[in-house]
Design a protein around this nucleic acid. Structure first.
Lengths: 334, 334
DNA sequence: AGTAAAATGATTGACGTACCTCAATTCAAT
DNA sequence: ATTGAATTGAGGTACGTCAATCATTTTACT
């Protein structure tokens, strides 16, 4: 009924159980001849290790941490929720998830959070600061597997990145912006922070496609909304006051302010924002927002866990596991 | 290290292990008082069953079948590939997947495939024919859990549907079509078969949004391409010959023919198709196709497996598990 | 040939749950 | 009080793998 076991492998390989074990868990001390025999037997019998038995036996408990910014609105709230949701599911697979909240731009706090971490692997969403990268190196050196989440730290020792291709996201935003807008006009781009990598990459992608394909549209200099509704609202209002905008690309958080400002504006610009939150969802419904580009937080969490598990298991991680698909939402498919 | 076990529950509940077992696996024959004690102890200790140990113990092997149309191009090929990919991962979780290929419109063959099925659950993608539905009932009656995949059989006894909301897909297609097209003109809709539910639902959604929001555009009567490149090509060519099309919504397969026809046409229509295949991907790249609406086959397989497992475990299936997100691909985000 | 090192075999005890049997106890109804 | 049924306890075995120990055989090198 159940498939072949190590015993079957041992029998067909004509070696002892101990040798099979040594090969399977490469403990060394096996002649190449015996190793070949075992491998042949594995292939012949079609043996696949029973993960349940394996985990049970070694009483493995995966301890994973998520060091992520806290907050009760916007994207980070979604991420938190996704984490909580997955947590329950994962407990019975012996995967314990610890969520360590930090503050969005508080580098010192992030470093502190990473400092006394006791786990097998960690997924971090933090600032691209040297101190953080240093801490990543330290973690890796102490045997902790590190994955970046949503915001990559490509210069660091992290072993994988889970999140969007932000350049592609920006390009996509530009494409739809361009196609929705027939005529010429001015477009406002609002980033959360001009010094954060993910926002910059989105900007870059957006700009590039605009230049390549939609030169009749004019890009205003990018502004910084600090991911806060207030300042976003003010920026949009101010820009609209000078002359009507035909398009707005909001790269970071603070969509509540954006919606307020757009609703007050004289002409309705084509508005593209990031992250499907209650606010942006409502914006889609009432027509204030035209498109929402979203990275699925659940998918991100699942992918992160999968990668962390593969890493701690010593398996090699399939490429693309960390690539989170860009979801595009319009009023018709929310 | 590892969490509380049944022993801990028994101890804190002040009952024997046997009673805990009886409650946990509701075998009956337990006084309500004892049951309450056990449940309280579970809550108090925070006991969660160790799935690995449980599965190991009962040497459970999930046997799932996928009865799906075969083919080496287009969507079905993607589905096959996704199945093969997932299969390897699932084996070591004791989930054995059998793929039973059928032919797309061959009802008799589909029924035959469903007839002598020996498994715990089955995911089927088949025609919405009474014979098939009857077979579903028979399967259910014999204890097999049934899930429909991609093409729903809502009238049948199936317990869940994994796939797109096809009406929403059609609506989304219409929205982008309408927004991409400023001027008026004629739009061609090509379904695979006008009698298949999923295609019909997409048509319906498309038509409705066109009528609601884009009345300046004219819809030609929907035509039937039989999911074949040849006939799709012919239909598009013929329609274009009469007068230039401004838009094409291709609902089914046969995109190779579509691409050929569009490339020969005088004016380039806005072209929206379904399913991200090598053909449609290439079409996006070279600009023949403007948008691809895709249902992620891997996600569908994963969701189907998850639901089948939950069903055979007797757990209730979270709503929305079967909802596959509509992926929207443009040339910038493939 | 002799010796050390390397390789292999044989065996055992967890891990946590499921499932079974058999005996012991409690309970309800006469 | 007696009987029969319902409930509870005690204990054991199995699942497949991991990880360890110790004895034994083979190999390599002088």
């Amino acid at each position: 009924m159940s498939g072949p076991t190590v015993h079957d492998v041992a029998r067909t390989a004509q070696v002892s159980l101990a040798t099979v074990d040594r090969v399977l868990n490469n403990r060394g001390g096996v002649s190449s001849k015996a190793e070949a025999k075992v491998k042949a037997a594995v292939a012949q019998t079609g043996y696949v290790r029973n993960l349940a038995a394996a985990n049970l036996s070694r009483r493995r408990v995966y301890r994973f941490s998520f060091v992520v910014p806290s907050g009760d609105t916007g994207f980070v709230a979604l991420l938190q929720a996704a984490l909580e949701r997955e947590r329950d599911r994962l407990v019975e697979e012996q995967i314990l998830i610890q969520i360590i909240p930090t503050h969005a731009f508080d580098v010192a706090g992030q470093v502190a959070a990473l400092r006394n971490l006791d786990c097998d692997a960690v997924a971090i969403m933090a600032s691209e600061a040297p101190e953080v990268q240093e801490e990543v190196s330290r973690l890796r050196a102490s045997g902790v597997r590190v994955v970046t989440l949503v915001a990559d730290l490509p210069q660091s020792d992290r072993e994988a990145y889970v999140g969007l291709d932000n350049v592609a996201a920006g390009r996509t935003a530009a494409e739809f912006m361009g196609r929705f807008l027939g005529d010429s006009g001015e477009i406002l781009m609002i980033a959360g922070s001009l010094s954060s990598r993910d926002h910059n990459e989105r900007l870059m992608g957006f700009r590039r496609v605009m230049q390549e394909r939609f030169q009749h549209l004019t890009l205003l200099p990018a502004v910084e909304g600090n991911d806060e509704a207030r300042s976003v609202e003010r920026l949009v209002s101010e820009a609209s006051a000078i002359r009507p905008l035909v398009g707005i690309y909001a790269i970071g958080a603070g969509n509540k302010g954006l919606v307020r400002a757009v609703q007050k504006a004289d002409a309705k610009p084509v508005t593209i924002v990031h992250e499907l939150t209650p606010t942006s969802r409502q914006g889609l419904r009432d027509g204030t927002i035209d498109l929402v580009l979203d990275q699925d937080t659940s998918a991100a969490v699942v992918a992160a866990v999968r990668i962390m598990r593969d890493l701690t298991e010593g398996r090699d991680v399939p490429v693309d596991t960390g690539k989170i698909r860009l979801n595009i939402f319009s009023r018709e498919n929310i």
